[in-house]
Design a protein around this nucleic acid. Structure first.
Lengths: 262, 262
DNA sequence: TTTTGACCGGATTTGAAATCTGGTCATACG
DNA sequence: CGTATGACCAGATTTCAAATCCGGTCAAAA
């Protein structure tokens, strides 16, 4: 059907195709949920053969994970841009605020984190230990950095703040899920949940983080700039390695041929 | 089989029997999970006939809910005792600390809140709207009280604090679940989660709540005593109405006969 | 009047056949 | 020569009916 089938001349072709697959998958995922989306659906949606999908991801699950990863990477990139523009974004309270909103504005992430069980199926349960480990490592380094720059309350260990921050953040995220769940079950015009707008709830989270974990003494502008640069590096590393690792790998393999194969 | 079958003379008999049923149910629930426990199992465990169970609760689900309620009521009672002994327990950070521990020390509540899906089945999903409403109401009043006594940060509305407190508390509870889950999946001797003991984690929660929500100016001893009394009243009301409402109702009906019936 | 357990019907489980779909690979194509 | 494809396979999932189970009732016993 596709007249341009066969070997492609353009080296960026594979990458472009990969994103097209991801786009198709994301769209279908969002509309029908992981359970109802087949690899063939995705292939059709991307105007390619089913087998081609497997030239990019070795597994359906990994394809879906890549969709998720891309969304995370995009949210992260958004934050990184913000961090470069406004260094204070790297402070925990700003970070929590912006990350919270970045996640909540993405239907895919929102759906996954609120664990709408239908939307992404067992993908939510897909606890990739490698990701957890990396996430843990980055979080650890982030808070260690903050501690070194004197941003954190001195009486708390960086690892303790990391733990408490994580718990608090997740608490606000889950509360968000509770909201959407109860608002869909339309209560009899009562129980308006206090913090009415998403913005307000993000503010509440930010305040909580700031007051609970940050030292009240402000950081100097220079320190802040330097810290922001460090944090940007740290997270850039995370995004690069995680967000597109598989994709890049496979695109390279597809475009350049397997280097070490016989 | 029971030689004392038939009409009982002792009016406290029904109540005693009800607790025996609850005990049996709790034991079985804890050991086998809601899915595997039948009403007959409970009846056998309590040495009574199956039909008798239905003299106390009109439904299996309500029986199980009563088990849960009793556990909550006991945790609450524990807190109420503490509050009378040490009025500062009614301050949000102390309250969070103690309630957190009270819950985590009860396998039934721990299991339910950590949503071990096997342990209590759909009971976890059993969102009794009446309970939610009451819970919401009590929480609202509690924080309003705190605000009136000047315990809360002045710049935050009582309802906002209620929201944020709930989110934070649940975040720490869920983090606890994450811990037990990952420790059972024995990671390769790495990733020790910073806050090593339950106590420490409770402290972390308490600190977070105190710094984020409470005014830094201490309350006078008199005010604190008065506040504690009010809070005790408020929660006593909750426990009385909720914890044993059904049970008391039915025991009364069983012991005294339906008062308004023909 | 209280307690009981046999009994009923809907809900759940079981098991086997039918269907679907993730993943492979021989082939077509440039 | 290497890429793209879709027919194909096996295992997973779904279907559907029969068998079983169990929540809840109620006539009878104590």
């Amino acid at each position: 059907m596709n007249p341009t089938a066969g070997r492609s001349r353009d080296p960026s072709r594979g990458r472009e195709r990969a994103t097209r697959i991801l786009d198709a998958a994301e769209d279908l995922l969002l509309r029908h949920g992981a359970r109802r989306v087949t690899v063939e659906d995705v292939a059709v949606g991307a105007n390619i053969g089913k087998g081609t999908v497997y030239l990019h991801w070795e597994t359906r699950e990994k394809l879906f994970a890549a969709v998720f990863d891309r969304a995370v990477a995009r949210a992260m990139s958004e934050l990184l841009v913000a961090m470069r523009t406004r260094p204070s974004t790297c402070l925990p309270h700003q970070f929590a605020h912006d990350y919270f909103l970045a996640v909540m504005h993405r239907p895919l992430l929102r759906g996954l984190l609120l664990a709408d069980p239908e939307l992404l199926g067992r993908l939510a349960r897909q606890h990739d230990p490698a990701w957890d480990e990396r996430h843990h490592l980055v979080s650890e380094r982030y808070f260690r950095l903050l501690a070194e720059y004197g941003v954190l309350r001195a009486e708390l260990g960086a690892d303790e703040v990391a733990y408490a921050f994580q718990a608090t953040f997740e608490g606000f995220v889950r509360a968000e899920g509770e909201l959407t769940r109860s608002e869909s079950a339309a209560p009899p015009a009562a129980a308006q949940p206090a913090a009415t707008t998403l913005e307000r709830r993000a503010d509440l989270l930010a305040r909580t983080v700031e007051l609970a974990f940050e030292d009240s003494r402000p950081v100097t502008t220079d320190d802040l700039r330097s810290l922001a640069a460090d944090v940007v590096d740290l997270f850039t590393d995370l995004v690069d390695r995680r967000g597109f690792a598989d994709l890049v790998d496979l695109v390279d393999r597809a475009e350049l041929g397997a280097p070490a194969a016989s």
